[in-house]
Nucleic acid binder design. Sequence first.
DNA 1: GTCACTATTTATAATAT
DNA 2: TATATTATAAATAGTGA
Lengths: 231, 231
Amino acid sequence: MGRKKLAMRRIENPTSRQVTYAKRKDGIVKKANELSVLCDTDVALIMFSPTGRLTSFASNGRVEDIFLRFVDRPDELRGGPINNEEDLEEKLDKLNRKQRESQEKMRYYEPDIEKINSVLEGGVYQQFLTSALQRIQLSKAKLLGNQLIHERNENAEMQAATVQMEDAVSVTDHSIDGNQNGMNSMRDIEDQNGTSLSMGPHLSLSFIEAQKHFKKLQGSELSTPSFDNYN
Amino acid sequence: MGRKKLAMRRIENPTSRQVTYAKRKDGIVKKANELSVLCDTDVALIMFSPTGRLTSFASNGRVEDIFLRFVDRPDELRGGPINNEEDLEEKLDKLNRKQRESQEKMRYYEPDIEKINSVLEGGVYQQFLTSALQRIQLSKAKLLGNQLIHERNENAEMQAATVQMEDAVSVTDHSIDGNQNGMNSMRDIEDQNGTSLSMGPHLSLSFIEAQKHFKKLQGSELSTPSFDNYN
DNA sequence: GTCACTATTTATAATAT
DNA sequence: TATATTATAAATAGTGA
């Protein structure tokens, strides 16, 4: 649109390029917002100007949340209760399959070393990741039904235990005063490419039953997770 | 655009909503691609349909990379050599300030526990994060000039040491055969909200000088990091 | 549900200020 | 160089097969 049809290639004139960026940036942010409002969906957008300036948009205000949702959302463990062992085993099978697929997706991911160019970037990202890891472990613990045996506190949310992510499957509960979370150590496994993989444990009945502390497993419900990738 | 002007609110009819989503999804992906091509920039887009289907786009093919770039890109440590101690101290000051700001940005981030609803999601994300952490630590080590004292190996890339992220600032080198990386343990600090913060160490001359193994510090160059946030 | 059509609205390239 | 205007291209809401 505009007086002339623009060829779909890099605009060589730096000024024009910046001007076009500015206009189209506004346009796409508007589009993203409209999409999220009209269709009531999560949308996240990250872009950098030709001069490196960052612009971001997230329908719910947090790119991080949507990125997290991007990583994977299998849904298999949501919903109603699990009735019997067959049900559970089937669900776990499905989860494990999904996990392998997702692993495939992530396995070869390697933050481009050339793009992590400052100590600060490393520090900030690490902070984010570490925090996220904690929450995830908390979530895992909750999912596996790791409730404090004694519900002495009403605000139980932040007091669930953490799950050890060691190869050896073990779970420790930490009853914690106030708002503290336990943080566990991690160890990594090397694959043939020197890429570290640290998956949660393979899910199996025996694993779950090993968790003596767990009182009940939360429910399961099927869904059809799939995705488009325009790359 | 269209026969009527659409009110900017959620489309209540589920079918219309889905149809509109489908059309606009294509539109915005096209826009994102055009923006990245015309202006030669990084663009990432994540969205979910009303039924939960994921669509993503990244100009360079990896949302992860662009997300990483989103987290922070201070640039202060890039570029040319540092000439003297004053220079360095000034740079570190700037970095530390930036780090606090970024911390502010990340501090309150808490992956919505309601949105981490499966063990799988936790596992996959954890895998991603752990891998990323490793790379970041590697990058940090490289940045701080942590080269192997004896360059016995040519493929030094994957053999840099890791940086301990403990409160007590300490650095350990791990000379490693083949492709292995050392993985260090982590410990977290609790803030008043129970949110875990695990920053890299505060940067200071004394810290840096404490790193006996480091041979030289890499350069610094100013930039004007800033960003728009449409939220 | 999915495709094509097209009347309209919207975005924007070039231009003017 | 930044902002406003306008002619034109592009996106899409409603429609029908």
